[in-house]
Amino acid sequence: MEFRTIVDIPVSSWKIKPAHRLLFVGSCFAGNIGRRFSEERFRVQVNPSGVMYNPVSVQHEIVRLTADEAQPPFDVVFITLGTNHVYVLNETGEIVDNCNKRPQQLFTERELTVDECVEALRSAVDRLLQRNANVRVVMTVSPIRYRKYGYHESRLSKATLLLAVDRLCKLSIHNQVVSYFPAYELVCDELRDYRFYDADMLHPSAQAVEYIWERFAEAYFDDVANTFIAEWKPIKDALGHKPFNPDSEEYRKFRADAESRLKAFEAKYAVGK
């Protein structure tokens, strides 16, 4: 007997390589998965300018990054959308990424339409393609609910984002570049239990994030990436070891050996920072 509904995730036709430059931008859920990649020694940047929740703010961040000539182009970009709610600075009519604790009366909150979300995301992908014609973009919608909007309104916001991402993935010029990973569905339809949430009953628990990581790896990792992670684990464990006597000769030799293995590992997979 089956006691849960399994979300079907197609295996990707392309794979993430250890030497790929990865960018995670978007809501705090992007931060959770991005940090998991960082822990596994992938070459990753996670929300360089802070958390971005809506498509326009994501677009702004990607414009900033792609305008920086010192920034090498990214191979794979992960975008996690949290909401279609934005704040507009009344004085200029500009959608801001952060209110910076300025008085609320300076801003007007509104909701982006599906079309506006699609246009912001399309523009962001186009900027990435200008820097790297072979870039791959993985879109996700955060499963985190927004209590302040009301739960029905939060669902409507997620629905707007899901419709926008679906439309973007189907655009003829982007359907080989952009793919969708169902993180939202994994939490809301497959796990679907409060034991997979943190104490606030809104954010996924560490166990849920780890499960999503495993499902993601099944879709986007090949033998090379899996071997990379397996070889990194004993080095990571050695570097994270807390010695009883850090000044001992034995520990100095242990640490030197671990650092030597790290250099060899980085050279083998071209993942030196």
Results as ranks from 00 to 15, higher is better:
Gly34Cys: 04
Arg35His: 09
Glu61Asn: 08
Met139Thr: 06
Val25Asn: 11
Ile79Ser: 08
Leu106Asn: 12
Asn54Ser: 07
Asp115Phe: 12
Pro143His: 09
Val56Ala: 01
Pro143Phe: 04
Lys101Ser: 11
Glu61Arg: 06
Pro48His: 15
Arg102Gln: 15
Val51Lys: 08
Arg127Lys: 15
Thr80Trp: 01
Glu111Pro: 02
Ile144Arg: 02
Thr113Ser: 15
Val63Arg: 03
Val44Met: 02
Phe107Asp: 02
Ser123Phe: 03
Gly82Val: 08
Val86Cys: 05
Ala120Phe: 00
Ile79His: 05
Arg122Tyr: 07
Val118Asn: 04
Asp126Tyr: 08
Arg35Thr: 13
Arg147Cys: 09
Arg145Gly: 02
Arg131Trp: 11
Ala67Thr: 00
Phe29Tyr: 12
Arg131Glu: 10
Thr92Cys: 06
Thr113Tyr: 10
Glu116Tyr: 01
Glu61Cys: 14
Gln45Ile: 00
Leu128Tyr: 07
Glu116Leu: 11
Gly31Asp: 14
Gly31Thr: 09
Leu106Val: 00
Leu89Met: 03
Ser57Ala: 11
Phe74Leu: 07
Asp97His: 13
Leu65Lys: 04
Glu109Ile: 08
Val135His: 05
Asp126Arg: 11
Pro55Arg: 10
Gly93Tyr: 02
Leu65Ile: 05
Phe107Lys: 02
Ile144Pro: 00
Glu109Asn: 03
Asn98Arg: 13
Ala67Val: 00
Arg136Leu: 05
Asn132His: 14
Phe42Cys: 05
Arg102Val: 02
Ala70Met: 09
Arg36Gln: 13
Arg43Ile: 09
Ala124Phe: 00
Arg147Leu: 15
Asn84Tyr: 05
Thr92Val: 04
Val135Ile: 13
Ala30Gln: 02
Ala124Pro: 03
Val25Ser: 13
Gln45Leu: 10
Gln59Trp: 03
Phe24Asn: 04
Ile144Cys: 04
Thr66Pro: 01
Tyr87Asn: 08
Tyr53Glu: 12
Glu111Cys: 07
Phe24Trp: 03
Thr108Val: 10
Val125Met: 02
Leu129Phe: 02
Lys148Pro: 09
Leu128Val: 06
Arg110His: 08
Lys101Val: 07
Val51Thr: 14
Asp68Thr: 01
Arg127Glu: 12
Glu94Lys: 15
Thr83Leu: 10
Arg36Pro: 00
Val138Cys: 07
Arg41Asp: 07
Val56Met: 05
Gly93Asn: 13
Arg64Leu: 10
Ala30Cys: 05
Glu94Ile: 09
Gln104Ala: 15
Asn84Ile: 01
Pro72Thr: 13
Thr66Ile: 06
Asn32Trp: 14
Phe37Glu: 01
Gly93Asp: 03
Leu23Phe: 06
Tyr53Thr: 09
Glu94Val: 09
Glu111Thr: 11
Thr80Gly: 01
Leu106Met: 14
Glu116Ile: 12
Arg136Gln: 15
Gln104Lys: 15
Ser38Arg: 14
Gly93Glu: 07
Arg41Phe: 08
Arg36Thr: 12
Leu128Gly: 07
Met52Phe: 14
Leu129Cys: 14
Thr108Ser: 15
Val118Glu: 02
Arg145Tyr: 04
Phe24Gln: 08
Val77Pro: 13
Thr66Asp: 03
Asp115Glu: 15
